[in-house]
Computed example of a mutant assay.
Amino acid sequence: MRKKTYAMRYVAGQPAERISPPNAMLHMGQGLPPGAPLPAHPQLKVLVWNIFKQQRSDWMSVLQGFGKDAHLVLLQEAQTTPELIHFATSNYLAADQVPAFVLPQHPSGVMTLASAHPVYCCPLREREPLLRLAKSALVTAYPLPTGEMLMVVNIHAINFSLGIDVYSKQLGPIGEQIVHHRGPVIMAGDFNAWSRQRINALYRFAQEMELEEVMFAHDHRRTAFGRPLDFVFYRDMKVSEASVLVTQASDHNPLLVEFLSQGII
């Protein structure tokens, strides 16, 4: 029996809230709560990082140094330890995590920290066919000062599989969300695109979704078999700065991207 897919929301001063998948996709606009926009003037700053379940001692210093000024922080392999929850709720209005699997004490999965409350939250999970462990993804949406809605996709892609059937299957529900959305999109995370088949599938998907790839002049992203694992894709936005932060605080280096808010079409 498959485990239920859900997200856990953490907000300062409130008990953790379990969020079930929505009854309708974002473009249907059914029952969306009113929300204050992301305070993204003049730039929208986004940090993307596989945090390696906080197994290395200096992960918090990296988050405090680079994450606290970001409007959005997209973490993969985020373990809901008290230290991470305290950081999230002290620096952000909301943190949403999709538990992929439960470790001895704390669930681990993708987590999106935001300086605005999401008006839409769709948790997704896909099981690794070989290890039988799950990988998670999260689709959230936030109002922008322009009046538009920003869709944010945080993903930790399937890693161990024969061929790309399950890899492509995980991207399918995300594509359904993006293709119907009229407005800017950010899709980022650890895509585990370590083979030619996987990178080709990912680029085909991005092309179908009309997403552009953020390029890094000094590319220090974690690689496997010579291919980067972490990516940031976007639509209807303009990139002002993009960098990779070199650190030993995880087995992945964080990606820091700034989008011009006035560049949102």
Rank of each mutant, 00 (worst) to 15 (best):
A94T: 14
D96W: 07
D96R: 08
Q97W: 11
Q97H: 09
Q97C: 10
Q97A: 07
Q97G: 03
V98R: 07
V98N: 05
A100K: 07
F101E: 07
V102R: 10
V102F: 09
L103K: 14
P104W: 06
P104S: 11
Q105W: 14
Q105F: 14
H106W: 14
H106M: 05
P107C: 11
P107E: 03
P107S: 08
S108F: 03
S108G: 06
S108Y: 05
G109S: 09
M111F: 07
T112M: 05
L113P: 00
A114G: 13
A114C: 03
A114L: 01
A114H: 01
S115W: 00
S115F: 03
S115T: 11
S115E: 10
H117W: 09
H117K: 14
H117A: 06
H117S: 11
V119R: 07
V119I: 15
V119H: 07
Y120F: 15
Y120P: 06
Y120E: 06
Y120Q: 06
C122Y: 15
C122D: 15
C122H: 15
P123V: 11
P123Y: 12
P123T: 13
P123W: 13
L124R: 09
R125E: 14
R125T: 15
R125W: 12
R125H: 13
R125D: 15
R125G: 08
E126D: 11
E126H: 13
E126A: 14
E126I: 13
R127V: 15
R127N: 05
R127S: 12
E128G: 08
E128W: 01
E128R: 02
E128H: 05
P129V: 05
P129F: 04
L130G: 05
L131G: 00
L131N: 05
L131V: 04
L131Y: 04
R132E: 10
R132F: 12
R132W: 11
R132S: 09
A134P: 09
A134V: 09
K135L: 07
K135W: 05
S136I: 09
S136E: 08
S136N: 10
A137W: 02
A137K: 03
A137Q: 08
A137I: 06
A137V: 09
V139Q: 11
V139G: 12
V139P: 08
V139M: 10
A141Y: 02
A141T: 02
Y142H: 11
Y142W: 01
Y142N: 00
P143K: 02
L144S: 00
E148H: 02
E148S: 02
E148G: 01
E148Q: 10
M149L: 13
M149V: 10
M149H: 04
M151F: 03
M151N: 04
